[in-house]
Amino acid sequence: MKAIRCNTYGPPSSLVLESVADLEPKENEVLMQVKACGINFPDTLIIQGLYQIRPELPFTPGSDVAGVVLAIGDGVRHVSVGDAVIGFVAYGGLAEQVILPAKACFPKPAPMDFPVAASFMMAYGTAYHALKDRGNLQAGETLLVLGASGGVGLAAVELGKRMGATVIAAASTDQKLELCREYGADHLLNYNETDLKSALKALTGRKGVNVVLDPVGGVYAEPAFRAMAWEGRYLIVGFAAGTIPSIPLNLPLLKGASLVGVFWGQFAMTHPKENAQNTRELMTWYAEGKLSPHIDKIFALEEAPKAIEALLHRKVKGKVVVQMK
């Protein structure tokens, strides 16, 4: 089979397309013929050796996959050979075949095409786990989404509105913010052109923001935290800005606020029943037309390095997807 390979840690341009051996599933594993693989920000880090997971070289990046079951290992009951499925792995998705843990593989809804399916699990799974399980977002509360035009950010905007919150979308350009408006954001903030803390205080009548979802980090974290309400929840999703921020610990004390880590992949592995329930809820909303993943561009497998490069340099609104022939 063909696969994108990382033979040495480095930029996307160092990735190569190679022929590798076909795969075979073991117990409680599913072998998928990959039809599409979504690109996520951790993909830009793992190939550089900057992610918390460091696979042994060489390896195949890619984690958000959709395709057809080729074979199943002993103990797999919920899917069969020939089923259309979606799933996720730590890495290995940018290939014509991938092995999935059975608990990370789900039937694909019939109306959902493969590129959409491959753009769905990690973005919406992360955003929903963050808002529901970690942030306890309630109807009537105010939600700030940093990096709101990205995959997780845009999903959080859409889900936040679905959950009854007032949503403030913050992003780096007016063009990106216009997409956030289309996805339901009530207020838009270009954080390159405004003082974030002052703008948030003004928008909330100085009450502050109840929940912040932050996949960005960097210089925006502290002013966002300073604009939080009493008993606010700050959801730490990632550091797309490239810098891990430091928060003065007197701020959580003075605001009675919480800094809450969000690691959806670990949650999905350690709490498979709860994750399956979240996934069913998301799939139901999709089937009802209440969720609509935004795909910026679709690439061929041999173009996967360009897809990762586009995400790395923040040229993407929503998701980019690699589709197999």
Results as ranks from 00 to 15, higher is better:
9 Y>S: 07
10 G>P: 06
11 P>A: 12
16 V>M: 09
19 S>P: 01
31 L>D: 05
32 M>G: 01
35 K>T: 02
39 I>A: 01
40 N>Q: 02
49 G>A: 03
56 E>N: 09
58 P>L: 07
60 T>K: 06
64 D>E: 15
66 A>M: 01
70 L>N: 07
74 D>N: 14
79 V>R: 03
80 S>D: 11
81 V>K: 15
86 I>S: 00
89 V>R: 04
90 A>C: 05
94 L>M: 14
94 L>P: 03
95 A>I: 07
97 Q>K: 02
98 V>T: 14
101 P>A: 06
103 K>V: 13
105 C>M: 06
113 D>H: 13
116 V>R: 04
121 M>K: 03
121 M>E: 08
121 M>A: 10
123 A>S: 14
126 T>N: 07
131 L>V: 06
132 K>G: 02
136 N>C: 05
138 Q>E: 12
138 Q>M: 13
139 A>E: 14
142 T>H: 03
142 T>S: 13
143 L>Y: 03
144 L>H: 03
152 V>K: 00
153 G>N: 08
159 L>S: 11
161 K>F: 02
162 R>Q: 13
162 R>G: 10
162 R>D: 09
163 M>Y: 07
169 A>L: 04
173 T>V: 00
178 E>V: 10
186 D>T: 12
189 L>I: 15
189 L>R: 01
192 N>I: 01
192 N>V: 01
194 T>R: 12
197 K>M: 12
201 K>N: 10
201 K>Q: 13
210 N>Y: 03
215 P>V: 08
218 G>T: 07
220 Y>S: 11
234 Y>C: 10
234 Y>R: 09
234 Y>E: 10
235 L>C: 11
240 A>V: 00
250 N>D: 08
252 P>Q: 08
254 L>S: 09
255 K>S: 10
258 S>C: 05
260 V>W: 01
263 F>M: 05
264 W>S: 11
268 A>T: 06
271 H>C: 09
272 P>T: 09
274 E>R: 12
275 N>W: 04
275 N>K: 11
279 T>S: 06
279 T>Y: 08
281 E>H: 07
284 T>L: 10
286 Y>M: 04
287 A>S: 14
297 K>F: 12
298 I>V: 15
300 A>S: 15
302 E>H: 15
304 A>Y: 04
313 H>M: 00
317 K>F: 05
325 K>N: 12
